[in-house]
Structure formats: structure tokens, C-alpha cells
């Protein structure tokens, strides 16, 4: 019994894939092809520019811009970072500085469905570890990995603020509440997870400043129903 714990710890320390002290990373060479066509479409750029009037500096648009780009491309590549930097008139090093601070931004591509499992105290007390282990088993991947077919990525996060419905799992943008280990198979197969009610980037449309038609607002309200689901309801159906 002595070995496994040590090995588990070793595995844990190895599981975080990073360069080690005996390796040298070369920063003199670009990692992207500067001649390749831009990755940010004009529509994306326009959406980012739409945020300029909101803030006093262009740098402040960085977080919205990163959200928009990640929503459009699935992740933020080196090339995208360089293009964002040019658009916001800041340095690429500032962009990577900011991106790497936040857990929500990914510099490498992720699966179509990104599963965020909460591992905070309420979820752990309510059996979140079993759910996470089941997810790992079913997907055959470890935390912060993506399945070979690119269908799923598994991410863990501290507290999703859904503690009253612990344990919680977010798949893409849908919060699944009170998940139990035996629900995982059903959860993964749920087609609704792959399709969001609203295209993601529309989350960042500027607020409507003109008096909108109240009727259209009501219909918009109905569209919004169901970005969260209670797994208990799913179990019963």
C-alpha cells in the first residue's frame, strides 16, 4: 500500500505538463507563421471594436476581446494573441501575461464540449470527487486533458457558486446541478450540451441603447430558458 500513494503523487506532479529545469525553451523563434492569413475575422474585430467606447483605455478591452476570440475560435492561439495585441495597440507580452493569469482562457484547442467539474468544498463534501473520477473513467482522460477525438475536454475549477446544488458540473455554458456519479453517462450523451441556445459571442453584444420593442424582448426572454438544468429532472424523465 505504500507505493501507490507515492506513485499517485508522482503521477499528479507529472500530470501537469510543463517544461522542466533541464530543458531550454527558445523564445527567439516565432511559434507562428507571420505570413499566414489572419485568424481574426473582420466580424470578430468589429465586435471587439464595439467595446472601445465602454472603456477609457484600449487595454481594458482585452478581457472582452479574449472572450470574443475564444468564443469564435475555441481557444486563443499565439497568432490570435499577436493580432489582438495589434488591434488593442498593446504588446503581445501583455496579452499572454493577462491570458495566463485567468483559468478561463485556453491557449490550446479544447474539445467541442468543455466539462468544468467543480471541486470546491461543498461539492467535495457532497460527492464531487466520485463524479470527477467517473468523468475521468468514462472519458479516459485526466484533468485538463482532451479526448483523442476532440469531443471532450475535462477541466476542474474552484467553486462555481452553485453550492446549494452541489455537486455541480458546467458543460459548455450549461450548469448541471446535483450530479451523481451514475448520472455521468447520461450527462455526456445529452445533446443539449453541444448546442447552446444563443451563439456564444452574442453574449458580448453591446447593450441596446435604443428603445427596443417590448414584444421582442419578451420573446428573447423565452429563448433564454434552460441554460441550466437540474439533473434530478433529467433522471425522472
Amino acid at each position: 500500500m505504500a507505493q501507490p500513494a507515492g506513485e499517485r503523487l508522482l503521477k499528479l506532479s507529472r500530470s501537469v505538463k510543463r517544461a522542466m529545469s533541464w530543458q531550454t525553451i527558445n523564445r527567439n523563434l516565432p511559434v507562428m507563421d507571420p505570413k499566414a492569413p489572419p485568424v481574426l475575422t473582420e466580424a470578430v474585430r468589429e465586435k471587439i471594436r464595439g467595446f472601445f467606447p465602454r472603456y477609457e483605455t484600449k487595454r481594458a478591452v482585452l478581457l472582452p476581446a479574449l472572450h470574443i476570440v475564444q468564443d469564435a475560435l475555441g481557444h486563443i492561439s499565439w497568432k490570435a494573441m499577436a493580432e489582438i495585441a495589434a488591434l488593442l495597440e498593446i504588446q503581445p507580452s501583455d496579452v499572454i501575461d493577462t491570458i495566463s493569469f485567468y483559468t478561463h482562457f485556453w491557449t490550446h484547442s479544447k474539445g467541442k464540449k468543455v466539462i468544468v467539474a467543480c471541486r470546491s468544498v461543498s461539492c467535495e463534501v457532497m460527492g464531487g470527487v466520485a463524479v470527477l473520477e467517473e468523468l475521468k473513467k468514462r472519458l479516459g482522460i485526466d484533468e485538463h486533458e482532451t479526448t483523442a477525438d476532440g469531443a471532450y475536454s475535462l477541466v476542474t475549477e474552484e467553486c462555481l457558486a452553485g453550492c446549494d446544488h452541489a455537486p455541480c458540473v458546467i458543460i459548455n455554458e450549461k450548469l448541471h446541478k446535483r450530479v451523481r456519479a451514475e448520472d455521468v453517462v447520461k450527462l455526456l450523451a445529452d445533446h443539449a450540451n453541444a448546442r447552446l441556445e444563443i451563439p456564444r459571442s452574442d453574449l458580448f453584444d453591446a447593450p441596446a441603447k435604443t428603445a427596443a420593442d417590448p414584444a421582442s424582448q419578451n420573446s428573447q426572454a423565452e429563448d433564454l430558458v434552460g441554460t441550466t438544468s437540474d439533473v434530478r429532472e433529467m433522471r425522472e424523465s
Partner: peptide
């Protein structure tokens, strides 16, 4: 916080409503 997806929609819609009613702007 970004994990508030549904809440973001709700608040954003409320803000839009407030703008439309002249309570913001």
C-alpha cells in the same frame, strides 16, 4: 465572474430593459 452564464443573460437583459425605459443612459 465568467461562470455565471445564465445570470449574465438575466442581468444583461435587465440592463437592456432599463436602457429602453430610460432608467439608464
Amino acid at each position: 465572474r465568467v461562470e455565471f452564464h445564465e445570470q449574465f443573460h438575466i442581468v444583461q437583459r435587465a440592463i437592456d430593459e432599463a436602457y429602453a425605459a430610460g432608467y439608464l443612459g
